[in-house]
Design a binder for these strands. Structure first.
Lengths: 142, 142
DNA sequence: GTTCCCCTACTCGGATACACTTTGTCCGAGTATGATCGG
DNA sequence: CCGATCATACTCGGACAAAGTGTATCCGAGTAGGGGAAC
């Protein structure tokens, strides 16, 4: 399984916001500097996260972004789904007039099941876990 | 999780070869017709499967392809890895000079773990299972 | 009848063009804060 | 001293170009089997 660049940026941005005071708004510019990406790119990610309610945005002169709830209540699965859409199984093949529907259905079912397993895996890790210094394997394993 | 078009074609081609007599060579043309794709496309898939030893190829006038071992000894994971490369976790982000290495490592570990889980899921289903008429959920669940 | 040669049908492997997804960048519009100006 | 107005700094949302990945198609080269001709 691979995490796209955008997903990584989203997770790292969330970790960055988690470091700040909970009542302070952080500007997209600062997030971009921290991630080493242009402000526009950071903005895209932050906007997606805000649309899904993971962070709050403040308009105006002293605006910015902050977490909408404690970091340990936000899972990586939620972050990834905010920027990549729902984690779900898909079997890419035009279900043409062939009689292969049975095999395709079986493979589709396999994809669905794998997606559920995958999402559960990503749900075990929270944004707060990204801040811990100790190896996180135990958390994922538990 | 999603299965690419190529992966689906590979799995369906394997299921098709599993239907044939075990000592009979099937031409790429026939596989293509069965899948509803051009012969060239089927050829690409079959060549990849042959390179990884999942099927045997016979050159010459009456050549073709056949399974190299019983269908119940070939898992979907092996088929997918033959055409898509190994199933492994990757965190797409340039590990620049930032001090984000800890967070990136944690996310990379999560990807690796997810990939292992995913591969195990795909290893539970064999090519022979694609031929069964009953729903295969039980197999995947067990 | 036997042997040699050629012809055909197929696979092999790379190369190339196309399509789709992902990524990066830009622009106009809207909003809240602070400063300024007039009463 | 107080309130209205303007300038500023930020977000919002869409649109668009660029890059990467996956997909489809084509071509020349090589190989095994069968048919035909010569002996």
């Amino acid at each position: 399984m691979k995490l796209s660049k955008t997903s990584m940026q989203a997770a790292l941005a969330m970790a960055f916001l988690a470091e700040q005071a909970s009542d302070q708004f952080i500007q997209a510019r600062q997030v971009g500097v921290h991630l080493g990406v242009p402000t526009d790119s950071a903005l895209k990610v932050l906007q997606a996260l805000a649309r899904h309610g993971l962070i709050q945005s403040q308009l105006g002169r002293s605006g910015g972004y902050r977490l909408s709830r404690p970091a340990d209540l936000i899972t990586i699965a939620q972050v990834v789904e905010a920027v990549r859409g729902p984690i779900q199984g898909r079997a890419h093949l035009s279900t043409s007039d062939n009689k292969l529907t049975r095999e395709i259905d079986i493979l589709q079912g396999l994809c669905d099941k794998a997606a559920i397993t995958l999402r559960a895996e990503f749900d075990r890790l929270t944004v707060a876990d990204l801040r811990r210094t100790a190896p996180v394997s135990a958390c994922v394993n538990s």
